[in-house]
């Protein structure tokens, strides 16, 4: 079955902008969390996908890593680390959750930990520059093959950005499988792949497993030639 319109893979680059505000302690973190653009909240919770995971620190989100490593506030670090950005429809809801956690933590602290040699937290936001890859797919088999070869930033764009920043709740892959191919079962399976705390290559690998299983179950129906008998 050929879908119309085809799925067009879009890659991206994140251009980083320093916002010129830095938090020296948890109280300032709370203050700036309330004021910075939503794009900054997004970057500090999801930006690790395009960086190298080990570069980020012990936790995936920058707020958690900073409070644990540079403020020595392990409890707040753990509480922030467990927040999954994919649980929220947009960065504003995510911001509210983070504010609520830091605020609650400070409410229970008599004296915030004093640390003199930690680095301040610099707020950064990202600007997404979209780059059409020229790859497109009309059938499930084509979709699988393009997904296997596309540059990793396209997986970031269609799964992470689409779901958490662009307001396309299920993500672009699931949206196309459901809307253009009528494959609700596959769309649901794709939605269930959990990107949080993973890497883009692992997300790719899990999605390919889902697609391969569907193609193996019905190759002729999915636009893939049946394998020749041995």
């Amino acid at each position: 079955m050929a879908a119309s319109p085809p799925f067009r893979f879009v890659g991206c680059i994140e251009l980083l902008e320093n916002l010129g505000v830095k938090a020296q302690d948890e109280r300032e973190l709370l203050e700036f969390l309330r004021r910075v653009p939503a794009g900054s909240v997004f970057y500090h919770t999801c930006g690790y996908f395009l960086r190298h995971r080990i570069f980020v620190g012990p936790y995936a989100n920058d707020f958690a890593t900073w409070t644990a490593v540079h403020r020595g506030d392990r409890v707040l670090g753990e509480r922030l680390a467990v927040v999954d950005p994919f649980d929220f429809a947009d960065p504003e809801q995510l911001r509210e959750e983070l504010i609520s956690i830091v605020s609650d933590h400070l409410g229970h602290l008599r004296v915030p930990p004093r640390v003199d040699d930690g680095e301040p937290f610099h707020f950064v936001q990202s600007h997404v520059v979209e780059i059409p890859t020229g790859l497109e797919a009309r059938t499930l088999a084509e979709f699988r093959d393009r997904l296997a070869e596309v540059e990793a930033s396209a997986i970031y764009y269609h799964t992470v950005l689409a779901r958490t920043r662009l307001g396309r709740g299920a993500g672009d892959f699931a949206g196309w499988l459901r809307g253009s191919l009528g494959r609700d079962d596959l769309a649901a399976a794709v939605e269930r792949t959990d990107p949080y705390l993973s890497s883009l290559e692992r997300v790719r690998s899990r999605l390919l497993d889902v697609l391969d299983a569907a193609l193996d179950a019905g190759p002729a129906a999915e636009g893939r030639e049946p394998a020749a008998p041995a």
Binding site: V150, E151, A152
Partner: peptide, 15 residues
């Protein structure tokens, strides 16, 4: 470079 980087650069250059 990481896989796909050069192709992405070629596309970005087109842009």
């Amino acid at each position: 470079a990481p896989r796909g980087t050069v192709d992405l650069l070629l596309r970005l250059a087109d842009r």
